[in-house]
Design a protein around this nucleic acid. Sequence first.
RNA 1: ACUCAUAGAACAACCAC
Length: 426
Amino acid sequence: IDGLCKLGRVEEAELLLEQMQQRQCFPNLVTYSTLLNGLCATGNVARAWFLLKEIVQLGYKPEAVSFNMLLNKLCKMNRINHAVELVKDMIEQGCSPDQVSHNILVDALCKSQEVENASGYLQLGGVFPPSVEAYTSLIHSLCKAGDYNEALALLDFMPSTGCLPNTITYNAMIDGLCKAAEVDKAHTVFQGMVKSGFTPDRITYNSLIDGFGKAGRVKEAEELLRLMQSNGLKPCTITYTSLISGLCLIRHVDKAVRTLRRMSSAGCSPDGITYTVLIDGLVKTGRFRSAEKLFMEMKMKSKRGCAPSVFTYSSLVKGYLRAGKPDRVLELLDEMLKRDCPPNIVTYNILIHGLVQEKQVDRAVWLLQEMEKQGCSPNIISYSSLIYGLCCALRLEEAYELLQNMLKVSARPPSPVTFTAIAEGM
RNA sequence: ACUCAUAGAACAACCAC
């Protein structure tokens, strides 16, 4: 049953569970939990919940582990109300949430931009003192919210509560700093981590390599790659993809292509993301022939996880729009539909921007309506691009109307970019 | 035996180049 679940073949696993009973071999709690986990992993939460209730009706008393599987999945799917309901269920059935349940809830609070609440919840403490996992969730989210100083303070503070950080905690901190464009601080934390006797893993290095790449400091990224290898860690697809991305950013696309070939011969195959990063870099430097070559290569390796994605198509569409090759753009759009890879909001935004650049504002106006019809609601970027176009064309009434419309329908507040665009356009 | 935290890709204005 576990094997089938891990292969994603949950229906067969369910069937097998029934068959074993017919053969007088009765499942126990572990059997059920195994299936439950499979159902959760494949997103069948409704069936998972049903199974959980069934287990109870059969007279079993599931432990926290079983509830936690579903709890985690519900939280990850952002179905917080259901998660809360499950916790109530759990308590009603005489099963107290354990440390793992708490960790899952803290993480959910963190990820729903309720870091403050998560922190408060932790301090409430109750039965469980904050665990490493909880601290790691907090550090990760604080960084994401832009408050890396607070995260650093927390990392410092943890040991005083008797809870030492581990490699994962450090990884969260290092990655958070890298994403905040503070690679030097990240590197300092990295050194501190090593000094304190923690062993960096593949993820630690991947974060740093990506961070240095994004800062345009590829030399240092490459040094880290060597350091990683000398510490017995094998660079993986993500490592090389970050490196390639960094090379593309500083426009060293030839070296980026060579890196792609090098990784293949090092026994590490590029995936769809690797190709997309490289294609994007090539297109941005006008190297369409090389980009097309790789694009072909992707299609040939479609069955090996390299199929072109919306990301790939969007990169190409943007490139060809800029290069003034509308025919190729149309071909690509057509291909997207044929390959069951329909344009998404970013693709539409690229097209609107392209039309505005070409002074084809009427068609851009039409496209904004069209995307809505295709079930793709415009966002701030779509509106801002079009408003800019309308302002440039001195169609101020329409621009104003659109702005009102945007303010009405948009969940998020307008960005300063919108207003700069209006001012510039006018 | 089963559950929790960390890593890679595409889009708008200006500025700078």
